Computed example of a mutant assay.
Amino acid sequence: MPLRQSVTAAGMIAGYVADAWFGDPRRGHPVAVFGTAAGQLERWWWADSKPRGAGYATVCAGSIAGLGMLAERAVRNRPGVRFVLIAAATWAVLGGRGLAAEGREMARLLESGELPAARQRLSHLCARDATGLDAAELTRAATESIAENTSDAVVAPLLWGAVAGVPGLLGYRAVNTLDAMVGYRSPRHRSFGWFAARTDDWVNLVPARVGAVLTVAAAPLAGGRARAAWRAWRRDGGSHPSPNAGQVEAAFAGALDIRLGGTNTYHGEVERRSTLGDGRPPGASDLRRAVRLSRLVGAAALAVAAGIAVAR
């Protein structure tokens, strides 16, 4: 195995283990620092214009990817330092442990009937308006977010790291963060955030479908059914408003024998989504199963990414 490829694979494995063991730093998280800087730049750059929004997203994400490229070139002949760089970048962009922790905490709050706290906690997983949501709707929202973020926060960054190294890791996370910041179709961001949202769609096209395949494969290990996951994914994955989120959400619904989809409110705008899966509405125990499935899919994605890095 060539040294460069083995260092990439080993660095990503180390970064994944660091995320699984330590989770996100409590202060000074690199993604939060980037988000703060991008938010400040947006206040100066904003205009109700698609070209202005495209320039903003290009500068923000391009700068981060460029810094990653320069850093990787600076250590290309120093395998030990390069290993540390890749491990640190992987740890910084992954969110598997944090996602699982939020899912388990939501399940605990729902099981204990603490609905006001659960409504407040939902904001840690998604931007959905939780005002007035009952236990069933809160559970569905959390389960859908676990599924979608399994792809966004674990599968996609690992795959981009495998094919593009540190620039891929950092550039992907920058694009995904910008989508979360300005990609929603609110009046302020309908035009300005269009480019960021479309770029996020593009960079997730392959990872979302890989995530769905891995969900099918991992379903039996989470007490689910691979055939049902495959059927729900192939039938329902394309009916979601997002070209990517529905892929993994549908696969999760089939794997866990639950039903997802329905009416959601984001920033005052109502979305009515098609049904995903044929099962019952999810309960708190299903949310815990979704967390387990998410962790299994993440581990499988790591194996795939390491294999790609070696083969590359």
Rank of each mutant, 00 (worst) to 15 (best):
D24A: 15
R76P: 07
R235K: 06
G193V: 03
Q247G: 02
A162R: 11
S294A: 09
V210L: 00
A300L: 15
A162D: 05
R234A: 02
A306D: 01
R26N: 14
A164E: 08
D48G: 07
V182A: 00
R280C: 04
T275F: 07
E144V: 15
I13G: 11
G211P: 02
D24Y: 15
A153V: 09
T265I: 13
G298F: 04
V248I: 04
R82Q: 14
A284E: 06
G28I: 13
E111F: 11
P187E: 12
T263P: 15
R173V: 13
V84G: 04
W230P: 00
G35N: 12
A218Q: 00
A212H: 02
P157H: 06
P2I: 02
A300D: 04
G96D: 14
N77E: 14
D129V: 04
R273S: 03
R280G: 07
V163K: 08
D278Q: 13
Y16A: 14
L125H: 05
G211D: 03
G80F: 08
R73F: 00
V270Q: 12
Q5H: 08
A232V: 01
V59G: 03
L138K: 13
I64S: 01
A101C: 04
A306N: 01
I258P: 02
G103H: 08
L214V: 01
L122E: 00
R43G: 11
L125E: 05
D152S: 06
R273M: 03
L158T: 11
R231M: 01
G28E: 12
V7Q: 01
A57R: 13
I86C: 01
T8P: 02
A219M: 00
A208W: 05
T143K: 12
V304N: 04
D286H: 06
R52M: 11
L133K: 09
A14D: 12
W230C: 03
S6C: 12
S63Q: 03
I146E: 09
A130M: 09
R272E: 14
G262I: 09
A217G: 02
L221V: 11
A311I: 02
E249L: 04
A87R: 03
E72N: 08
D179Y: 04
L159A: 07
R295S: 10
A156Y: 08
A219I: 05
H267D: 05
R82W: 11
L110G: 07
T8I: 10
A162H: 10
D286F: 08
A147Q: 15
R121Q: 04
A311T: 00
W233L: 02
F22A: 15
A197H: 09
S112D: 15
P25F: 10
D236N: 01
F195K: 05
S239G: 05
H267L: 06
G183I: 10
L159H: 11
R227W: 12
G279V: 13
D200N: 05
V297Y: 01
G53E: 05
A101L: 13
R26A: 11
Y266I: 10
E144T: 13
Q5N: 12
P207E: 00
V248C: 00
S285E: 10
S123C: 10
V84H: 07
P243W: 00
P220G: 01
G193I: 06
A217K: 02
